[in-house]
Design a protein around this nucleic acid. Structure first.
Lengths: 209, 209
DNA sequence: ACCGAAGTTGGGCGAAGGTCCAATATCGGT
DNA sequence: ACCGATATTGGACCTTCGCCCAACTTCGGT
């Protein structure tokens, strides 16, 4: 479709012929491709942070695709996965899907089906990473708050008035104002509404008042 | 575990023997069970809003389990599903999992595995329904807002000041105050923070200021 | 023609929030 | 012992908000 490579697809399969044909198909469809013969080889490659996805054989000597899926999840490496398998094993497919796989296809794979799955996987990778980037950004801002500021922050997003917060913390209202102002600065919030939203996506859950 | 039935499990399978044995197993484990021979029979039963889940055979004459899954989703009937199948079909399992199934088991099923899946399904049913109930409640409150109030509502959760909202709507600040007060009443929000959270779970997405 | 809901505007008052100014005490690290 | 970060408090000033009172217009249904 597009002239420049739409995304990078990592193909991991122990069968050279399969790698060959998958690579050809994907390249013909405008994707960049890097093929690996084993999970080990793939993990040796430095993480890629552009648009990409993983096309993964399930059963391979020296580390299965499901293991790799687990490993990537644990390591926090967000790469959406499309599985391909030559063996008919429902248990494996279910585990893969539970683990967040985008799709789980059986050989022989219809080209259109594969390409559609790949595109969805690339899109999901991007979306997941965007989301995580947002959360990380907010968490970092929260990290710059002093303990006291963090307390005030948590109470402000609860909807408490400065006076109430002051009572709750055992200090004077004026002090709360100072902390509050600093919180707004550090969190780069222009309003309480924004602050509440930041708290939400940042994981600072406000208890019901 | 518990003496009173923990939950109601709907078993749908065309094989009488399977229904029999599943029913026996589940009852022995403290679940209440209702068994049906077909999708049609199950759909004839009025919806149950207590803790429950669906134990569903995939292939049956007169409507497959996957069809039922689709139908329930479309109808907005939240019942988590555990599939059981006698046929090894990866495509079916993947579709089921994509459709939100809790698990997809193959015959013969290990009792412990089945029970664990059932418990997870019941828990998810409850959780999903609680979540939907919350959203519905909030949507209903939003529904009581007049058009103008809804506009003010949307702008307030953006973090705009009354004065800015007034300019944006071409009215005087005083008017905005009136609408705003009514919004707080109708939405039963005690603070802007609460209002923002209500807007979030209610689907009123505040554009970035 | 009448009535109620919705939208609008007015005044005034007290509470709350934001922003300047400046000051003090404590604690940990240099 | 000194310094910077943190936490604390004070005052003054202005803005903003929430809530009380009341009033007017428009629109749609009875």
């Amino acid at each position: 479709m597009t002239s420049p490579p739409a995304a990078l697809v990592f193909v991991v399969d122990d069968d050279p012929d399969v790698r060959q044909s998958l690579t050809r198909l994907l390249r013909a469809s405008g994707f960049a491709v890097e093929a690996f013969a084993s999970v080990r080889d793939f993990l040796a490659r430095p993480a890629y942070d552009g648009p990409c996805c993983l096309l993964l054989d399930v059963r391979m000597p020296g580390g299965t695709g499901l293991d790799l899926q687990q490993a990537l999840t644990s390591a926090g490496r967000l790469v959406s996965i499309v599985f391909i398998t030559g063996h008919v094993d429902v248990r494996e497919s279910v585990q893969a899907m539970k683990g967040g796989a985008v799709d789980f296809l059986t050989k022989p794979v219809a080209a259109q089906e594969l390409l559609a799955a790949i595109r969805r996987a690339v899109a999901r990778t991007l979306e997941d990473r965007r989301e995580r980037a947002r959360v990380t950004e907010i968490r970092e801002r929260i990290g710059t708050l002093t303990p006291r500021e963090a307390e005030v922050f948590a109470l402000v997003v609860t909807g408490m008035l400065n006076k109430q917060i002051a009572n709750s913390l055992g200090v004077v209202e004026k002090t709360v104002k100072v902390h509050r102002a600093r919180v707004m600065q550090k969190m780069r919030a222009g309003s309480v509404a924004e602050l509440v939203r930041l708290a939400g996506t940042g994981g600072v859950l406000a208890a019901r008042s």
